[in-house]
Write a protein that binds this DNA or RNA. Structure first.
Lengths: 192, 192
DNA sequence: CGCCCTTCTTGGCATTTGGCAAGAAATACG
DNA sequence: CGTATTTCTTGCCAAATGCCAAGAAGGGCG
């Protein structure tokens, strides 16, 4: 139940001292999810800014045709937030569900803003998380429109092999923008 | 050469008073681009946080196969930034080029941070722009993996009809993730 | 252990989209 | 005005992916 990972992460991303990081981390409280628990449900206003210590989460929504579509995966060492809902205080369109048992550290919207106010050095962290997420999404977007599904799958496997172990194929497929049937065939050809 | 649009935009997004907005807008300086001028070239570190008053811009990059891929379009009343390059002070992967003559108001990274420091009420604006951009990109990502190209094109036409007037078909096509040939056929069927 | 339900694979066929190439139309520019 | 260049359309065929359905494999639980 130590906040070591969080403290190190804060130091690295916000470029703050160990002491500052420890003080900031103090505001975060422990959160645990069991497999299949929801961190957030559609319709709710998110109030969780979560640093994931261990475990895997999946974000998903339903498209206009009612299909379950995976919008993101989150692994250990990542910040899990539904940006629009959390910062704009609007109902979420997405569900966030634990793929495996998860543990992490969370703060609320109010706490986060209080920290930004009290600790100017922490503001850089808040911005950096948004900027990183933005850049990652742009990279994913570019890959989606320029690379074939097989290549996108290979990248995913290389980037997060644990994910492929724990997430059912249909969730990975919808994340990649293809059907589970296609992904199954892609796997087959890659295996050869 | 009046900053009216910018002032109104600041008031609406940052929820500041007219006086505060005018003071903030004071820091922005006039910028004009002729058609085909570049606001930013790949390899440069962006130092432009631009509010576009009039005109159209296109952002693009080259994929691994060397194809020109449109990553975004920007119209009047929008904030034009290469988020990763501007905030992380890293070389841009993208080009930003004027599709038509453009006018707008820009500030530098240093100025922006000075404003955040001097005017706490402006911080909300900075965050809101990032959050909006993030949410918009997520929506686009979801549409890309769930909707057929024809539907994505129709949405684009409805959302920005002027864009379709000024951007060549191949740029729109690569933005949608299809070839110009396919888009031409899609247009044909939609016309009937 | 055995059943049930979810997950994964596979086959057959339809649809979408791409690659290539040619020609028509529009636009830029001397 | 006329030529050159770019843009857009179209035809033909190939490749990628989707849809439907059936069966195999795997995991959870009484």
């Amino acid at each position: 139940m130590k906040k070591e990972k969080l403290v190190l992460f804060l130091q690295r991303v916000a470029l703050v001292t160990a002491g500052q990081a420890a003080a900031i981390a103090d505001e975060f409280s422990y959160l645990a999810l069991e497999k299949n628990d929801f961190l957030l449900q559609a319709g709710q206003v998110s109030d969780s800014y979560l640093f994931l210590d261990a475990g895997l989460l999946r974000a998903f929504t339903y498209d206009t045709a009612g299909h379950d579509v995976t919008t993101g995966f989150y692994g250990s060492g990542e910040v899990v937030i539904e940006v629009a809902s959390f910062f704009q205080r609007t109902p979420s369109q997405e569900y966030f569900q634990a793929l495996t048992a998860c543990t992490g550290w969370r703060i609320s919207f109010t706490q986060l803003n209080a920290l930004f106010h009290a600790r100017p050095e922490f503001r850089e962290f808040g911005r950096a998380i948004l900027v990183r997420g933005f850049a990652a999404l742009k990279t994913r977007m570019l890959a989606t429109i320029t690379e074939p599904a097989a290549a996108r799958y290979e990248h995913l496997v290389r980037a997060s092999p644990e994910l492929v172990q724990h997430a059912p194929l249909k969730h990975i497929a919808s994340y990649l923008g293809i059907t589970d049937t296609s992904l199954s065939r892609i796997r087959k050809t890659l295996a050869q």
